[in-house]
Amino acid sequence: MAFDFIDRAAPAAAFVTACVLAPACGDSPQVSGEGPSMDLDAPTHSLPGGASFEALSARGTFTVVLEPEGGGVPLNEPFAMRVHVIDTATGEPLEGADAVTLDARMPIHGHGMLRDVELVESEGDGYRAEGLLLHMVGPWEFHVDVQRGPLLERAQVEYELTL
């Protein structure tokens, strides 16, 4: 089952957070510029096979678990992820979703992917998200929105993509 994609603006708070988190390195005598610099020596998010990252939704209704296929998120190459939406109350896959969408945003740059991500439901195994591509290093946010009836709730997963 495929779901249509809905684009949403990244919350302003996320931008502020990302700015604060970006490390201000490089205050050597040779440099004098303003602004943050990326940390090349930050822990890499190259995940071992089967590893995942997750986040609780805004109202706590569900938890989203993201599993990049191949064990990690590549820089500037297409990739796919498994997306699991788990009901907080039961610990089982969330039931009754009318639509589930996924987007990836880069608040510090004010943009995200310019691609619609297709989510294909797998019986008993969540969804497979295809066509993702993160073209820059730095802080990204995966937004998973679940619509159930008149309600729409988001789980937001932060992810630092490194070189």
């Binding site: 040779q30 440099v31 004098s32 510029g33 303003e34 602004g35 740059h109 004010g110």
Partner: peptide, 16 residues
């Protein structure tokens, strides 16, 4: 419209 919010003057020295 959108533009790169990350951009800030680098204040490069001539040697840099």
């Amino acid at each position: 419209h959108h533009q790169e919010q990350f951009l800030q003057p680098l204040r490069l020295h001539e040697r840099e």
